[in-house]
Design a protein around this nucleic acid. Structure first.
Lengths: 333, 333
DNA sequence: TTGTATGCGTTATCAC
DNA sequence: GTGATAACGCATACAA
């Protein structure tokens, strides 16, 4: 495999000149430029980025850590990140953490090992303290899920308001018995969604029935389990707000298995608006996050941190939207 | 950030010795080893992989090119690849090609630029010729989708047999009017699935009605469109075999919109057994690929190619399975 | 406008 | 067992 030296010899110039041509330096006679280009072509030369990056102490590579590519929620976010990255000469490296902190540290090490210029977390597993420490030495951005008080930049939506609106939507449809399927993880967004739900109930002076409170893991099965338990009782809610679409769909399935029809006998609201929310029968009323925009914003923030090491941590909140579909309808009086 | 030189000075040894310690060389007195380790710890030293990889002309990084992380089908495959990679000291870099050949070439360039040791394609967009040429210079493995006659290793299932069995299942349930929703892409697997379907019909001397033949893009909407058109006619099939689960789900939705119930009035078989296939109501009869195993096999093959540059191209066919669920039932007589 | 020389951080060869 | 040093491929400061 040809290297820059061979190209130089073949073109009859020095390696410096070849390097200049490769880097679009204006100080090269167009004639020599041609010579170099033809040598490059002739030899099928491909610059070795290891050498280049070592010399530049920059890789133009950004790590994107996500819990799982099985979750379709992340696809559009990643697309947004990628587009901004590519438009700025960067590549991104997607890394599956499996929500495993050890696996996450494995990838963080690649950053510390100078194989990448920065890291975007879609759902950080490490603690706020670790995150803070990391961000002191390297460009770090959190996207969607984030650790509060870590003093680390993040892009997100207002989860509190979103949950508040979702719950209020159910209340305005006449529902008074409203269950909540939350999660027992320690993400701030979870707490915020829970609080938004409580706030709406409070505002309308609706009592919160603790029996209707459930905790899942964002996945389908936990929704199904919650639904199976909850809907077996006579005193069951007429509506459920689940903080993820997959859990909402699990609830609907559990309802169907008990002969309870959605939305006739039970209204269900999800969260995230994954593509399947629209494919599902009944289609799902849910909160839509501007995922592509969130990804774009996160990568732009990353570039700012890379180019300006002293760029201060900042928090970006983008607009969400309540999407009305078939899974909710007015309560029977 | 400390480098190997500073560690050496701090420990009072040469850089060579530090390097030996880092690489577990047996020829180091345990006493000096301790000194070096404590220096490493004290200085918070992290080896720079750019320097190491440049010197070693090896990165222990493998590219995995997939059309889209939005497709849940790939998740388990990637998991299989990752597990084998990590167990062998490799990392993988996931790259979204968006089924775009230019984007794919962008990532292939990273390989040519020595930033990775090899590439695994989950659905190659470049031509067989390009693939062949690439594989002559670099370790290349195809996984699931592949270009035939490229002389490039691949891991897959027997798509012909799988489709044959899926169709035969419908025939044995008494269906004689069986539609096929295929795709108009140029993947060999598509042709093979189509041929499997034809073979089954032939074997049972069932005429193929070309009006019931459709071509989608593997996505939900194309399934819905096919279903909407097909099921509007009086002369409609009693069963449909779709070569992807998302298309199958689209067909079911279209049927529901026309008051046609699955499986009572229409049986539907999908392909791939994505997680929605199980969540969906009705749950989907489909072909399950051993996705994790496929990923594992692909990465093992990659390691073989990396470690043995002359390792011959080989073709691995793993076992599929027909999964029976709610979306199929006996034809009404 | 071009060439020479140096260094990025590491590993590997050789000598001791 | 350990150290000195060349080499990996490239970009760049400086000289010409």
């Amino acid at each position: 495999m040809a290297n820059i030296k061979e190209v130089a010899r073949y073109a009859g110039v020095s390696v410096a000149t070849v390097s200049r041509v490769l880097n679009d330096s204006p100080n090269v006679k167009s004639e020599t430029r041609e010579k170099v280009f033809s040598a490059i072509k002739e030899l099928g030369y491909q610059p070795n980025l290891l050498g280049r990056n070592l010399r530049r102490t920059r890789t133009n590579l950004v790590l994107v850590l996500l819990p799982s590519i099985a979750n379709p929620f992340y696809a559009a976010i990643v697309k947004g990140i990628e587009d901004v990255a590519h438009n700025n000469g960067y590549n991104i490296m997607l890394c599956n953490t499996e929500s495993n902190v050890e696996r996450e540290r494995l990838y963080i090490r690649l950053l510390k090992n100078k194989l990448a210029d920065g890291v975007i977390f879609l759902a950080p597993q490490i603690s706020a303290d670790e995150l803070t420490e990391l961000s002191l030495k390297y460009p770090v951005v959190q996207c969607c899920e984030y650790r509060e008080n870590a003093g680390v930049s993040h892009v997100s939506i207002d989860n509190f308001m979103a949950a508040y609106e979702a719950t209020k939507h159910l209340i305005r449809l006449g529902h008074k018995k409203i269950g909540l399927l939350s999660s027992d993880n320690d993400f701030i967004s979870t707490k915020q969604r829970e609080n938004g739900y409580r706030k709406a109930l409070e505002e309308y002076r609706i009592m919160l029935n603790k029996i209707w409170l459930g905790f899942g893991d964002y996945g389908y099965n936990s929704g199904y389990d919650y639904g199976s338990k909850l809907l077996g009782n006579d005193d069951r809610p007429t509506a459920v707000f689940a903080i993820s679409d997959l859990m909402a769909i699990g609830v609907i399935k559990a309802a169907a298995d008990k002969g309870i029809t959605v939305p006739d006998d039970l209204s269900v609201v999800g969260f995230d608006n994954i593509s399947y929310a629209y494919m599902h029968t009944p289609s799902l009323t849910t909160i839509s996050q501007p995922r592509y925009d969130i990804g774009e914003a996160a990568m732009k923030l990353m570039l700012a941190h890379i180019n300006e090491p002293d760029y201060p941590p900042c928090s970006l909140i983008l607009k969400h939207q309540l999407v009305l579909r078939e899974s909710t309808q007015a309560a029977k009086s």
